[in-house]
Structure formats: structure tokens, C-alpha cells
Design a binder for these strands. Structure first.
Lengths: 173, 173
DNA sequence: TTTAAATTTCAGACATTCCTGAAATATCGA
DNA sequence: TCGATATTTCAGGAATGTCTGAAATTTAAA
């Protein structure tokens, strides 16, 4: 896989953003490469193009698959795996948002449920604190539910809503 | 500052989530502590309560202030800084989202702008790749603009919209 | 000023995460 | 089944990020 200067720039930038995005540089670079690549690539091709260890590519691809951003295809008469990234930018973003919700929000909701129950029983914990935890839990649960509803809406509807921007508010109020 | 078992649990959980949230454990724990604390705390009190170095608290508080999650107050006749976290959960979440947008999206939009310009001039870059980069840029810009609009809406309106869930779609279509 | 408290800076210790390369395992055709 | 190729696992090294404690700086009262 030959990279033009522009493609290289994208891949490198993805790698630089990796830290902030909470993934490793390899994962980010591989994702950029597969996103740009016009056709599926083998793990070897990826390793060669990005100059990283073959095993690193294997692990990183597993992570990208766990994010539902990359899938495997095959070519007739070739038993190597060919990897392919989601190309639809909308699906890419929603996959990332789903993954983040699962990793960053859901565990906290579980703990907060236990904490509120515990706080209510415990007379030591100030009422104010219990209240604060409860409010946070309820808020997270409400946002979670709202997110699920939004996710279930057909894309054209969602797009239309987005394009309306603030005018929705005027209609519904 | 004495922590009840429930408060401790929250603080520790925040610390454990820190990695996934892209902040250091200290920053997360200090935020949890200040969020729960009924009143402002000095840096020394924080250091003592969480058993971390005083200097660490100083740096972490600076980061929390850069996120607009923590502010400084003073008590009459006391020249120490007293730190206070945003208590309104809605404001907390929007502050975090603003910070993430600034750190995780905005830099990429800038680079993608340069990349699309570059790709268009460069005949080497395949048309398909240029197109893909352009679509991604346009999508990010659209979402950014949409986010700004949403952020500017008065909170009660936004809450009403959220509570309506999918029924908004039926009304506008 | 001077002094003392409060805060910040920063070099290095520590911890964590990431990556590599070798070895083990899996897969498929012959 | 065997052999060749593809993939994964994993221990240890490299790189990065975090935290500490001492020293420097800032701040405000005396």
C-alpha cells in the first residue's frame, strides 16, 4: 500500500490524536489507513505500510473490531484475512459513540446505583451528598435512555432534525 | 474532610474510570471529592483527604479549572484558596463535552481542512481518497455547528426536547 | 521592605501502557 | 496426516504518563 503525502499526513495526525481519543497510536493509525484505503488490506500490508510489528497489527485490529469499526473479508483462493473499515462516516461516528458510552458511562451508572442505595441506608452520609449522587445517577440514566431513542431513529429523520437546528425548538414549544 | 464509605466508593470509582475518561487518577478523584463536598476545600485539605502530594493537587486543580469544572473562592481573613466544583450536573456534563470537543475534534477539523486543500491540488492522491477526507471534514463541521446551536438553546427547551424523545420526529416530518 | 505562608515549578522516581519479536497456535491445502 | 502459511499470544523492553518532594516563586500581612 503506497501512501501519498496527503494520506500520510492524515494517518500521522490520527496517530497524534490517539492519546486524546483514548486509544493507542497504532490503533488510530491503522484505522486511518483502512478508512482511506480504497480496498481491503492484509495485516501484513498494514504492518509494512505503517512500519509496525505484525503482532501489533493483529492486536490493534482486534480492538478496532471490538469497536465495530473494522471487519474481515476474504478473497477467493487466498486464505489471508483482508481488513476493511467502515466507510460511512455516520456509522463510524455512531460506532465510536456507542463504544464510548459502553466503556465510559455504563460502568459508572452501575456503581452509582449501588452508591445511592448504600447512601440512603447509611445515616453517616450527609443528606446533601446522597442527593447529589442521586441527581447525577438520574441524569445519566435519562441521557442514556435519550441516546438509545435517538440511535433508534432512522438516519434521514435524524439528519433532517439536525439540519433544522434551533428551529425545532420553535415548533415544539 | 472526612469521607463516609459511600463517598469513598465514589471517589475511588472516579479514580478507576480516569484512564477511560482520558484524565489522570488524581484529577478524577479530586473532581469527585469537590463535586460531593458540601463546601469549598483548600488544596491542603484535598491532599490530606486523598493522600496525594500537595503539588499534585495544585497541578490537578489547574487542569480541572481548564475544564471549567472547578473554580476558586476565598474566605474572609484567610488567604488560602478554597476550591469549589460545579454542582449543577447539567453544567458539569456540558463543560466536559465542550472540553472534549475542543481537545478531540477541533484540532482534527483544522488538519482535515489543510488535507482536503492539499489533496485536491495533488494529482497523486486518488479521487476516492480525497472524497472520503472531504466527506469526513464536512460531517465534522456540520456536527460542530449543530452542537453549537444546541448549546445555545435555553436549558428548559432542551430538556423538553429530550423528554419528548422520538416524538419530535413525528411532529417535524 | 521583611517575613512567613501559600502556591507553583520541575527533575527524577515510579507506574502504566504500548510495542516488538520469538514462540505457540491455528488453518488449510495436499 | 503433514507441511506450509497465517494468526495470535506473551514476556520483556521501550516509550509515555503520572506523582512526589525539594526548591523556587508568588502573595499579602507586618
Amino acid at each position: 500500500m503506497k501512501l501519498t503525502p496527503t494520506m500520510q499526513r492524515c494517518v500521522l495526525h490520527w496517530g497524534e490524536m490517539a492519546g486524546r481519543w483514548g486509544i493507542s497510536r497504532s490503533v488510530a493509525q491503522i484505522h486511518a489507513l483502512l478508512f482511506l484505503a480504497p480496498e481491503p488490506l492484509t495485516a501484513d500490508a498494514i504492518a509494512e505500510t505503517l512500519n509496525v510489528a505484525r503482532s501489533n497489527v493483529s492486536v490493534s485490529l482486534k480492538e478496532l473490531q471490538s469497536w465495530d469499526l473494522v471487519s474481515v473479508t476474504h478473497q477467493l483462493g487466498d486464505r489471508r484475512d483482508y481488513f476493511l473499515a467502515r466507510k460511512d462516516i455516520w456509522e463510524v461516528i455512531t460506532a465510536i459513540m456507542d463504544g464510548r458510552k459502553k466503556r465510559e458511562i455504563d460502568p459508572t451508572v452501575l456503581v452509582l446505583r449501588e452508591c445511592t442505595a448504600e447512601a440512603r441506608k447509611d445515616p453517616e452520609t450527609p443528606e446533601q451528598v446522597t442527593e447529589r449522587i442521586t441527581v447525577m445517577l438520574e441524569f445519566l440514566e435519562e441521557v442514556s435512555g435519550w441516546y438509545d431513542q435517538i440511535r433508534a431513529m432512522p438516519r434521514p429523520t435524524l439528519l433532517k432534525l439536525m439540519r433544522m437546528g434551533t428551529t425545532v425548538a420553535k415548533i415544539v414549544s
